[in-house]
Structure formats: structure tokens, C-alpha cells
């Protein structure tokens, strides 16, 4: 029973990441509205971040902030199995902040397009471009 649960938990996690990634990809390809496309891009991005973070998870480990940081036993021996792998967290932390900066640029582009064509729908913009 425990084996079954752990298999399901493991696979369910990976399936959900792939589902989220595909939801984002589908929105970027098929949605007509530019803001919806940007939402899709962000969902794609967070799905990848979720995948990376989940790589670092270790059973029976704690958060990557060392205990006994200061105090009498500073030279306490640290065992790597006691702490979650911090490297994926570092990579993804900067990715989130860069993600919000690119989100700002994407929304700025959407506003520029709206000012020019007075619509956010992709097909209406394409019709107006063809007419010119």
C-alpha cells in the first residue's frame, strides 16, 4: 500500500508538471487574445520552475538554511542528506524575478499594440494589417 501511494505520488507530480506546461503551450499557440497568451506564457514558465524545484526535494530533509549557524558549536558537522538540495532554488529564484520583468515588457508591447489597432484580438489585428 505504501509503495503504491509513493508511486502514485511520484508519477502524479510529474504528470501535473507536464499538464501545466502543455496548458501554457496550448494557450500560447491557440488563444486569440494577447493578454491570454501572456498568461499562458507565465503558466509555462511556472511549470518549468515547479519542475526544477521538485528536483531538489529530498525525503526526510529540511529547508536549506543551516542550523547552528552561530553560537557555541559553529563547527558543527553538516551532513548533506539533512538538507534539501539548494542549487535548483538558486537558479529558479532569479528566474522568477526576471520573469516578472519580461512580463512587464510583454504587457508594454500589448498596450502599444492596443493603442495602434484598438483591439487585443489577434485575428482583428491581422485583418487590419492586411487592409493597410
Amino acid at each position: 500500500m505504501t509503495d503504491l501511494i509513493s508511486t502514485v505520488v511520484a508519477k502524479y507530480n510529474y504528470w501535473i508538471y507536464i499538464t501545466l506546461m502543455m496548458i501554457g503551450l496550448y494557450a500560447m499557440i491557440a488563444k486569440n487574445n494577447l493578454v491570454k497568451k501572456i498568461v499562458g506564457m507565465n503558466i509555462f514558465q511556472t511549470a518549468i520552475i515547479l519542475f526544477y524545484v521538485s528536483i531538489g526535494v529530498k525525503k526526510g530533509a529540511t529547508i536549506p538554511i543551516l542550523e547552528h549557524g552561530h553560537g557555541p558549536d559553529v563547527h558543527h558537522v553538516v551532513h548533506a542528506v539533512d538538507y534539501i538540495n539548494p542549487l535548483p532554488h538558486v537558479l529558479m529564484l532569479t528566474a522568477i524575478v526576471v520573469g516578472v520583468a519580461t512580463l512587464g515588457v510583454a504587457l508594454a508591447l500589448a498596450i502599444r499594440i492596443y493603442n495602434n489597432y484598438n483591439t487585443l484580438e489577434e485575428n482583428e489585428i491581422l485583418t487590419q494589417v492586411r487592409e493597410k
Binding site: 511556472t46 520552475i49 515547479l50 524545484v53 521538485s54 531538489g56 526535494v57 530533509a61 529540511t62 529547508i63 536549506p64 538554511i65 534539501i84 535548483p88 532554488h89 529558479m92 529564484l93 522568477i96 524575478v97 520573469g99 516578472v100
Partner: peptide, 17 residues
């Protein structure tokens, strides 16, 4: 992410995302 123990990432997402 906070369930997965990535506290820094969770904090960033709470403030940024």
C-alpha cells in the same frame, strides 16, 4: 513550493508572482 521546502523561492513567488 513551501511544501517542497523551497522557502526562498516561495517567498519570491508570494511577493513577485
Amino acid at each position: 513550493w513551501s511544501i517542497m521546502g523551497a522557502v526562498d523561492v516561495a517567498f519570491t513567488e508570494a511577493s513577485v508572482g
